[in-house]
């Protein structure tokens, strides 16, 4: 499953090539090591007593050198997109619940004040059906839908400043 998550993130990011801090990015590191989460007991046991091996080295991006052009800091105008893409399922649960740390982080990315979070969460829960209108709702759809709702909300459209 690690591999699937890795693939989802990689594919999502590849569709936004300039995600990372601007460089003539070879985009190196993306997909450099997708550790194959080996299913089955025997390979796992043999691989057992090794820890600290980052099994989800989706980016394997270092601090900028080592032959890699990308510098690991996500471009500001892609932050929302990447966050939602990676955390879609957690967000959907938080929004249905009207609370949660993923929802809090999203409100921060939308530039909402912390005082406005309660209202933000209520809106998210209220509009859940609209925002997740299909089983395969995707990040882009959710993001644009949410921004639309925020822009239309009398209080939130002034308390959240990254919704355009």
């Amino acid at each position: 499953m690690k591999k699937s998550i890795g693939l989802i993130v990689v594919l999502g990011l590849l569709s936004a090539p300039a995600v990372f801090a601007a460089n003539n990015g070879s985009g190196c590191g993306l997909g450099k090591t997708l550790f194959k989460g080996q299913k089955g007991m025997v390979p796992n046991i043999l691989a057992a007593i090794i820890n600290g091996i980052s099994s989800n080295n989706v980016f394997a991006i270092t601090s900028g050198t080592s032959g890699c052009d990308a510098d690991s800091v996500i471009l500001r105008d892609k932050e929302q997109e990447v966050f939602v893409a990676v955390n879609l399922d957690n967000l959907s649960q938080d929004m249905a619940q009207g609370d949660g740390m993923y929802l809090q982080a999203l409100s921060g990315l939308m530039g909402c004040t912390t005082e406005a979070f309660g209202t933000f969460a209520e809106l998210a829960q209220d509009k859940y059906e609209v925002l997740f209108d299909t089983v395969d709702a995707n990040a882009a759809g959710l993001l644009s839908g949410l921004k639309r709702e925020l822009a239309a909300h009398p209080m939130l459209n002034t308390n959240c400043d990254r919704i355009s």
């Binding site: 090591t33 390979p43 043999l46 691989a47 007593i49 600290g52 091996i53 080295n57 740390m101 809090q104």
Partner: peptide, 30 residues
Amino acid sequence: AESQRLLDYSISYGAVVPEDVNGFMFALNG
């Protein structure tokens, strides 16, 4: 805000492991 720590960056050290490695070589190399 403390509630938004998810957005911070993490620094982690780990080995770069090639994709198609069998468990035994993985253990030995590691």
